[in-house]
């Protein structure tokens, strides 16, 4: 609720202010967080050496044992974590520059919200959406579904898809 120039109350959509949210720094490959400031300042993970240091809102960021992917605004995969490589049976080098739908597809037919996985990822890649949860499955597998959370990450701004729990 806000007040306009004439002093009348009106309803309008407010952008969520993410600048005040706590951010978590993590490696885009091993998912581990830095132990000290110098590690956090490094662009490349000093622990595994195979990932770039990214940051995401604490509620969207992955834990060290969470499989996750980083997707850009065109929905092409930019990074695949080590655990996601094992889970999806694909190496990061093979997956990079391919469309996310080649590996993961929505699997929540009963979902009441009209927002598709693609829309959520596209919004997150622009840094415009709060963290959201979706149900997905590997594109080539039936019978396995995952809760996944989608949120923004960066730099540069991209979407983070963390596979949380198998259902």
């Amino acid at each position: 609720m806000s007040t306009d120039a004439q002093g009348q109350s009106s309803l309008r959509v407010l952008q969520r202010d993410r600048s005040t949210e706590p951010l978590k720094v993590f490696c885009g490959h091993c998912g581990r967080s830095p132990d000290n400031e110098s590690e956090a300042d490094s662009r490349v993970c000093t622990k595994c050496g195979l990932g770039l240091m990214l940051q995401a809102p604490a509620d969207a960021a992955p834990g060290p044992s969470d499989p996750f992917l980083v997707v850009d605004g065109a929905l092409t995969i930019c990074a695949v974590s080590r655990i996601a490589e094992r889970l999806l049976e694909v190496s990061e080098t093979e997956a990079v520059n391919r469309h996310v739908a080649e590996f993961l597809v929505p699997a929540d037919a009963e979902s009441s919200s009209g927002e598709s996985l693609a829309s959520l990822l596209a919004w997150a890649a622009r840094g415009e959406t709060p963290s959201a949860q979706v149900v997905i499955r590997p594109a080539n597998t039936f019978g396995v579904r995952y809760w996944a959370r989608v949120g923004p990450c960066g730099p540069p701004t991209a979407a983070l898809l963390v596979l949380a729990d198998a259902r």
Binding site: G28, V44, L52, C78, A79, N97, P156
Partner: peptide, 13 residues
């Protein structure tokens, strides 16, 4: 490329 990329793979690409 590392400054603009999101992973080492994408930077190498």
């Amino acid at each position: 490329a590392l400054q603009e990329g999101l992973s080492i793979s994408s930077a190498v690409s």
